[in-house]
């Protein structure tokens, strides 16, 4: 039974990835670039959903992880002359460390306190970036385009900002995230995480050390978010404080809830829908956050399971 749902689920994800791969050849330039952006942001949402949807821990500070990956990538290329690959590895190790340390503190609290603590930690990193503005360029941010160099594929040189490179790097990352999270969720570890979400006290009394599993989930989610940030820096070569603000912590929450928390495709769908919705509204008014607010309220009242969650409940039970 279990194996079957793993195969179904990987099959479906394979289909989504294949479609995303194929449509790049027919997408108009504008949407081509939107899709690249959506895929990067969706991988961030998938990282977020690993914690919220499968472990039941709601964080309001994930921008901290995203931004630390992003700034490590950007600053190490800028100041230390790292290559993008070195920057990525450095960024991954650093966010991994931050996640563990943060988790050791924050997971001492639970429920509402945990939320507030994540929010405040996120805000602290944001303030730190502003405070050390001589080093981080504060509110203005910076670009790493001129430091990036080129990428050699089959003997030909490409820029990282080349739309095809950008699209396919984003796609590869998305694919890896989808597959890794699916495998973990359907493994015995995933079963324990879901058990913690459903009934933490009982899981403890089945003999599991709940704290270490929560720490694992937080670390995994934080590190993935950090890698998303690093890749965002690489592919869009802009690093700025907007990615460390509270809004950027709330965004993955919104995408995940809208698409369906605890579903693997949900975050991707939620990100896409919101991206295009905001894109559309921005053409009419600059106050798109008003719409974000309204959608948040409406989703939580009438649609708490999100798009995919409702689909799963009504029609397709095996959806992971």
């Amino acid at each position: 039974m279990k194996r079957k749902s793993l195969i179904y689920s990987l099959f479906m994800k394979g289909g989504v990835i294949l479609i995303l791969f194929l449509i790049q050849f027919i997408l108009p330039t504008y949407h081509h670039s939107s899709f690249s952006k959506i895929m990067i942001l969706a991988s961030y949402a998938i990282a977020y959903n690993f914690l919220l949807g499968y472990t039941g821990l709601m964080s309001l500070g994930h921008a901290m992880f995203f931004a630390s990956g992003m700034y490590t990538m950007g600053l190490s290329i800028l100041y230390l002359g790292f290559t993008p690959l070195e920057g990525l590895i450095f960024g991954t190790i650093l966010t991994l460390t931050i996640s563990i340390v943060f988790g050791l503190f924050a997971l001492r609290t639970s429920g509402v306190s945990f939320l507030i603590v994540t929010l405040m930690f996120g805000q602290t990193l944001y303030l730190a970036i502003l405070y050390y503005n001589e080093f981080t360029f504060g509110q203005d941010g910076f670009s790493i385009t001129t430091y990036l160099g080129t990428l050699v594929i089959f003997g030909k040189e490409h820029l990282y900002s080349n739309p095809t490179i950008r699209y396919n790097f984003a796609l590869i990352m998305l694919a890896v995230y989808l597959i890794i999270t699916t495998i973990i969720i359907l493994s015995p570890i995933g079963r324990i995480l879901i058990a913690i979400r459903e009934n933490e006290a009982r899981t403890q009394l089945l003999g599991y050390n709940v704290f270490s599993y929560k720490l694992f989930a937080l670390t995994f989610s934080g590190t993935l978010a950090g890698i998303s940030g690093a890749m965002h820096a690489l592919l869009f070569s802009y690093i700025g404080t907007t990615f460390a603000e509270i809004h950027h912590s709330i965004s993955p929450l919104l995408w995940t809830l809208l698409g369906g928390a605890g579903t693997v495709i949900g975050p991707l769908l939620g990100t896409g829908v919101m991206y295009y919705l905001i894109d559309f509204i921005s053409g009419i008014t600059s106050n798109y956050l008003l719409v974000v607010g309204i959608i948040l309220v409406l989703t939580i009242i009438w649609f708490p399971l999100g798009i995919m969650g409702t689909l799963r409940q009504r029609w397709i039970k095996w959806l992971p």
Partner: peptide, 10 residues
């Protein structure tokens, strides 16, 4: 919390 974040934005 999600709902009041929405109210905040509105």
């Amino acid at each position: 919390i999600v709902a009041t974040i929405g109210i905040l934005y509105i």
